[in-house]
């Protein structure tokens, strides 16, 4: 295992300290590193709190800031944070208008956020993100996983929270955006959990994992590496099959951490053509490493159906460490 670290036990703390120091105009560290919060809070607005296992950087702490999250709770690598983190974060950032949890649909995350909501003595609603079409819901009772679509929900709901909308309203908006969002990923290599020290899975030199999750969980099937166009075709087909009507769409090509931008833009090119040939109009785009799996090579494609409301919210200013526009 080759990583820049001093040891698996301190990697998370040292990295978080670096993150907060590098962006101290935007974020501040919570007590005991339980959460990262905005440096400046806006009292009166609903507080958005997300979090999850670490190793998906910049998700979630990179999206703390005006127009997106109020706080993010980082768990150990690929392990949900614990309820005390969410409770402490809520205590710190709830401005009196209630708290919205944004949670990726993994049992660990769901249960820990749920326990936090039960134990915290305040008004909390939760949006569960489950955008990963690689998981066929007909066969898996756990339901779909939450992957890169999470940042789309965080952005759009974050903008709406900034407008002063109420908690129930934001929860409904989050559910709506989640319902309009579909993703699927593919890995070309594994990732290595620092504390484990060995790759989570292994692929042959000519193999890829189609439908991989963002923790290196194996996907739909392991197949021979194919040209980018064929990969895009399979993913877009899977996504389009699960979308309602085609229409205006946001296309997000998200790198898993080990794939260069050159390839991500190439995948964007391939995916966009295939979406448009199916009647989608790609009106908003994002390409980069946003929801990663440590150093895993690979990418995911996310499509969110947009309407006038969500388009305007997507375009609203945001100032976080990892996503910034209009301010």
């Amino acid at each position: 295992m080759k990583k820049f670290m001093n040891g698996p036990d301190t990697i998370l703390a040292e990295s978080l300290d670096g993150f907060v120091a590098a962006h101290d105009d935007i974020v501040a560290m919570g007590e005991d590193r339980k959460f990262v919060r905005r440096a400046t809070l806006s009292p009166g607005k609903v507080a958005l709190i997300s979090g999850g296992g670490s190793g998906h950087e910049p998700l979630h702490a990179g999206f703390v800031g005006h127009g997106m999250l109020d706080a993010a709770c980082p768990g150990q690598v690929f392990t949900s944070p614990t309820p005390d983190q969410m409770i402490a974060a809520a205590d710190a950032v709830d401005g009196g208008a209630g708290v919205l949890f944004i949670v990726k649909n993994y049992e660990g995350d769901v249960m820990n956020f749920e326990m936090a909501a039960e134990m915290a003595d305040r008004e909390i609603l939760t949006v569960i993100i489950d955008d990963d079409v690689a998981v066929e819901t007909s066969t898996f009772s756990t339901g779909r996983r939450g992957v890169a679509g999470t940042m789309v929900v965080e952005k759009i709901v974050g903008a709406a929270a900034e407008e002063g909308r109420g908690l129930a309203d934001l929860k409904a908006l989050g559910d709506k955006v989640n319902a309009a969002t579909r993703s699927m990923g593919v890995a070309l290599s594994s990732c290595i959990v620092p504390a484990a020290g060995t790759p989570t899975f292994t692929l042959d030199d000519d193999e890829m994992e189609m439908g991989v999750g963002i923790h290196g969980e194996p996907g739909r099937r392991r197949v021979k590496l194919e040209p980018a166009d064929a990969i895009a075709e399979e993913i877009v087909t899977a996504i389009a099959a699960e979308m309602g009507a085609s229409g205006d769409a946001l296309l997000l090509v998200n790198g898993f951490g080990g794939t260069p931008l050159m390839e991500l833009y190439l995948m964007y090119h391939a995916a966009r053509a295939r979406l448009e040939s199916r009647g989608f109009r790609v009106t908003r785009s994002l390409v980069g490493n946003f929801v990663t799996s440590l150093e895993m090579a690979g990418c995911s494609i996310t499509v969110t159906g947009l309407d006038a409301e969500t388009t305007a919210l997507w375009d609203a200013p945001v100032q976080s460490a990892a996503f910034r526009q209009g301010m």
Partner: peptide, 14 residues
């Protein structure tokens, strides 16, 4: 355990 494990096993064993 709830406050330290995280993941699925923390809330469950907790």
């Amino acid at each position: 355990l709830v406050m330290k494990v995280g993941g699925a096993s923390g809330p469950l064993y907790g």
